[in-house]
């Protein structure tokens, strides 16, 4: 399978990349790892007329700690993040994306700009209440996770804009877990759950966040679960009762692998597992 023809540029600065994108018009697209875009182009589901490859733009591949947050450059690959304990749920979830070959190419910025509800990092960003920085002709702006994911494959990153950086709070002292269910190795999540738990001194739940993968057209917060646990005990019974509300307010579409009912069931079970693990720290 061969993509339709397109023009290609690999500028060596962000300013030139933005200018090239602007000159390329509506059908010009940035290219990061290419592991969402190229498969779509090979199937001819996407046919951009110009790809602006970001690989030579300096300063976009880094992980830095600053004032209680991690700042991660948009071109940082899943492989650069996988398994890094200090990054909490980001390190855990990146290790579960696809396979090593895909992780060696795919980037955090590409994943978040693409906004596939079956992908893992949007859910983690939403749970961690992170944000992204984007640059465009009109300057720089910050988009919070809550505003970023708008619909299926639709994010607030506008055409002509480049996502440059991802910021997540370090959440020190919080426990985290990302539970992902798929039937075959390497597959996308049928459903995924990111749970973050902060225990108070008396062992109760000081704060909690739960977000869901593939339960709708965007990643979703399971607010009913959070409300039911916050301020209360964190024993198995309380967690199990809260997890029963994981699918509340969701409307998951059925697909080849799972009916809506089955996805709802998975959301409840995985939320229970994720909360138990996160509550252990």
């Amino acid at each position: 399978m061969i993509p339709s023809a397109f023009d290609y540029a690999a500028p060596d600065s962000l300013d030139v990349a933005l200018q090239t994108l602007a000159d390329g018009g509506e059908e010009a697209k940035p290219l990061a790892g290419g592991h969402s875009l190229l498969p779509l182009m090979k199937l001819r589901l996407a046919a951009p007329t110009l790809l602006v490859d970001l690989r030579r733009v300096p300063g976009l591949r880094s992980v830095e700690r600053e004032d209680g947050s991690w700042r991660i450059g948009a071109l940082t690959r899943h492989a650069d993040l996988q398994g890094r304990r200090e990054l909490g749920a980001v390190g855990e979830a990146t290790a579960l994306i696809a396979d090593q070959q895909v992780r060696n190419r795919g980037t955090i910025g590409g994943s978040l700009a693409h906004g596939d509800p079956a992908s893992d990092l949007p859910t983690v960003l939403l749970a961690m209440e992170g944000a992204v920085t984007v640059r465009g002709g009109a300057g720089t702006r910050e988009i919070t996770a809550a505003d970023l994911f708008q619909d299926y494959l639709t994010t607030a990153v506008a055409p002509g804009e480049i996502l440059t950086e991802v910021r997540v709070p370090a959440l020190e002292g919080w426990g985290h877990a990302y539970e992902k269910f798929s039937r075959r190795a390497e597959d996308w999540a049928m459903v995924g759950v990111c749970a973050l738990v902060q225990r108070g001194e008396d062992g109760s739940c000081a704060d909690v966040r739960v977000a869901l993968t593939n339960m709708g057209s965007t990643p979703l917060r399971a607010l009913a679960v959070e409300e039911s646990l916050r301020g209360g005990p964190l024993d198995d019974g309380a967690i199990a009762a809260a997890a029963e509300q994981a699918d509340e307010g969701t409307d998951p579409p059925g697909d080849l692998n799972a009916s809506p009912q089955y996805k709802r069931h998975l959301a409840r079970v995985l939320t229970r597992r994720a909360l138990r693990r996160a509550a252990e720290g």
């Binding site: 290419g34 070959q101 190419r105």
Partner: peptide, 8 residues
């Protein structure tokens, strides 16, 4: 390692 069918 990369999948060369998905790299230009």
């Amino acid at each position: 390692a990369v999948k060369s069918c998905t790299v230009l």
